[in-house]
Simulated scan of single mutants.
Amino acid sequence: MPELPEVEVTRMGITPHVVGQTVTKIIIRNSRLRWPIPEAIKNIEGQVIHKVVRRAKYLLLETDIGYAVVHLGMSGSLRILPAGSVVEKHDHVDVVLACGEILRYNDPRRFGAWLWQPIGEDHPVLEKMGPEPLSDDFNGDYLVAKAKAKRKAIKLLIMDNHVVVGVGNIYANESLFAAGIDPQCPAGKVSSQKLHLLVNEIKTVLHKAIVQGGTTLKDFKNADGKPGYFAQELQVYGKGGQPCPRCGELLTEIKLGQRATVFCGKCQY
């Protein structure tokens, strides 16, 4: 599933091609995604795309009258292609641009979304979200306050979009390893010092993943079709039973919140 770095890489990849361009047509081949694509999405026809904004794992194509809100789901991708490119299976949406290119959405599992948000309104899917992890609003003092007296496992806390958005499973595993924190530890029991360190590690891990172009596991390819390379730098995710890269002890893999969780019982406490 594309996580925050993959979505950010996609945003950076499509932005030079779509910003400043007029949308001449929206082609919807299959409206049955996670939620039905609303007819209002065609309001974007004739509008200029001024900006592509990322909020959590959503991309917002901004125009004067509103936003097309896009989520890549579990297997979705956005590609820039020449107009008239052959339509492949699972190519569900095309945004046709006046420059002769198209922004094409492909989604084999159809768990993504295309939604409409008028100017001046907040779409329900974007309400009540926590701060962006790379913003100044997400800092050590903030996480200490959110963790106070919480019995919830620290890994589950940092994956809660009401606390901070976009820290998905891969990056939660990696950040907790880097900070030396047991992912099962109740959030309220983690020291203030370690919580400050965890914030720094989350920012570092996400930034590295963005620079590397995301993490390609099964489905993700970025906007130019090239894979991400951060998977080559993963320390623990997907490596249960292998030696810890720090101490050599075998890494433990468990299910936590129904998600694969890998950690070192010696280095993380």
Rank of each mutant, 00 (worst) to 15 (best):
Q193A: 13
L143A: 09
N106Y: 01
V86S: 04
G214L: 04
L126G: 10
N200W: 00
K128A: 14
I202E: 04
P82A: 02
A98S: 14
G120Y: 11
Q184K: 13
H207Y: 04
S85W: 00
I170Y: 01
G168N: 03
D136R: 09
S175L: 04
T204M: 06
L176F: 08
F138D: 05
H90R: 08
K189M: 14
V165E: 02
A149M: 10
L195Q: 05
A178W: 01
N161T: 14
L115V: 08
D107K: 13
I210K: 00
A98P: 02
E127K: 15
R109Q: 09
D182L: 03
G188L: 11
G130Y: 02
A172L: 02
A113M: 15
K128P: 04
I119L: 14
V205Q: 03
M129H: 05
Y142I: 09
I154F: 10
Y105S: 11
K194F: 01
A83M: 03
V164E: 07
L143C: 13
Y171H: 05
L97G: 01
E121G: 03
K189T: 14
G100K: 09
L115M: 11
D91N: 06
K89G: 02
K208T: 10
V87C: 01
E88G: 14
L81S: 03
V96N: 08
V190R: 01
D94H: 13
L176I: 11
L197S: 03
Y171N: 00
C99G: 15
A179E: 06
K155T: 14
A113R: 13
D160V: 14
D141E: 14
H162E: 15
N139C: 15
P118M: 05
I119G: 05
Q212F: 04
K150I: 13
V165G: 07
K155A: 11
N169E: 06
A113N: 10
E174K: 06
L134G: 05
L156N: 15
T215M: 02
D160T: 14
D122C: 08
E132L: 09
L115H: 01
L198S: 08
K155C: 08
V86L: 03
W114N: 08
L157R: 06
I158P: 11
G213C: 04
A153I: 10
P82L: 03
G213V: 07
P118W: 05
L115S: 07
